[in-house]
């Protein structure tokens, strides 16, 4: 180093003040980053830390696990995730194949098909809620007219109500995942299919050997992301059943909010903490995927 310590360097260094001073570029970098950092610290880090601190007592968990509603919610959440997501993604995969078929009327249909995703959930879920009304709802009225018998009391039975909530969730988010898978399918080079046709591949073989290998990573990522979002889906259950009948259809998302409304914040946080073993691996997986 001493060989390059020329007079000019020292003059320049001393003229420029202490070398550690930030350049305007670095300074503006910090200034422009600051708003988000502030948002994150104030509205994510502190709340989450505070919330975890509130949920620090083992006795909150004892109380939580003793609550039968909690056990029911865990079961409901797992059913929601396992059945709901697999059903949704399988249908989305199927429909994405339908929608990439080149027909003018299918293009039009695809524009309509986005509607459930493009409109807010509240009015549509409430609309479905009324459709399922045992006395006045259109569903039971049609059943009565066709069979002469009364339809079921849709939202008053735990399993039927939970199934309906799942259907509402699927109705709302199916368009989004179908769109994602359509994008994935459109990215597959057409020559692959042409070559396969020449080789005499059947529809199933084309799916098995061309579509699926190209789409499987996207499908898996979508399923994981969908799981995370489904865990946070409050509306589908709350607006349809309100957790009833008799708190039997709660999922963890609505249960946490229920405790919060009952001013039992420690239980609310404990509910969330008990979901972390499921959430964190999924989040970790997604972060690895996206931050590559």
């Amino acid at each position: 180093m001493s060989t390059v310590a020329l007079p000019g360097v020292e003059a320049a260094a001393s003229a420029g003040g202490p070398r550690r001073r930030l350049s305007p570029w670095q300074a503006w970098g910090l200034v422009l980053l600051a708003p988000y950092v502030a948002v994150f610290l104030v509205f994510v880090l502190y709340p989450v830390g505070y919330g975890l601190w509130l949920a620090r007592h083992p006795q909150s968990y004892v109380q939580l696990f003793a609550d039968p509603v909690f056990a029911g919610s865990v079961v409901n959440t797992l059913i929601f995730l396992i059945v709901g997501i697999n059903l949704k993604m399988a249908v989305a995969l199927f429909l994405s194949g339908f929608f990439v078929t080149a027909r003018p009327w299918i293009r039009w249909l695809s524009v309509l098909f986005i509607l459930p995703w493009a409109v807010p959930s509240i009015p549509t879920i409430l609309s479905i809620r009324f459709m399922l009304n045992p006395e006045w709802g259109v569903v039971n009225q049609v059943i009565f007219r066709l069979t002469g018998a009364d339809g079921p009391n849709w939202l008053n039975d735990r399993w039927i109500a939970l199934s309906m909530a799942m259907l509402v969730h699927i109705w709302k988010s199916l368009p989004f995942w179908t769109m994602i898978l359509i994008a994935g399918r459109l990215a597959i080079p057409g020559e692959l299919y042409e070559a396969a046709s020449v080789d005499g591949a059947s529809v199933w073989q084309r799916f098995r050997f061309i579509t699926w290998p190209s789409l499987s990573t996207l499908y898996l990522t979508s399923a994981i992301l969908s799981m995370i979002w489904t865990l946070g889906d409050f509306n589908s259950v709350y607006l349809l059943t309100g957790g009833g009948p008799a708190d039997l259809t709660h999922v963890l998302a609505t249960l946490g909010i229920r405790y919060l409304r009952l001013d039992q914040v420690d239980l609310a946080m404990a509910t969330i903490v008990s979901a972390l073993p499921l959430v964190l691996p999924l989040v970790y997986f997604m972060m690895k995927r996206l931050s590559r």
């Binding site: 989450v48 946070g232 946490g256 979901a275």
Partner: peptide
């Protein structure tokens, strides 16, 4: 998940 962050 959005509903989880809502509590804290």
């Amino acid at each position: 998940p959005a509903a989880f962050l809502a509590v804290p």
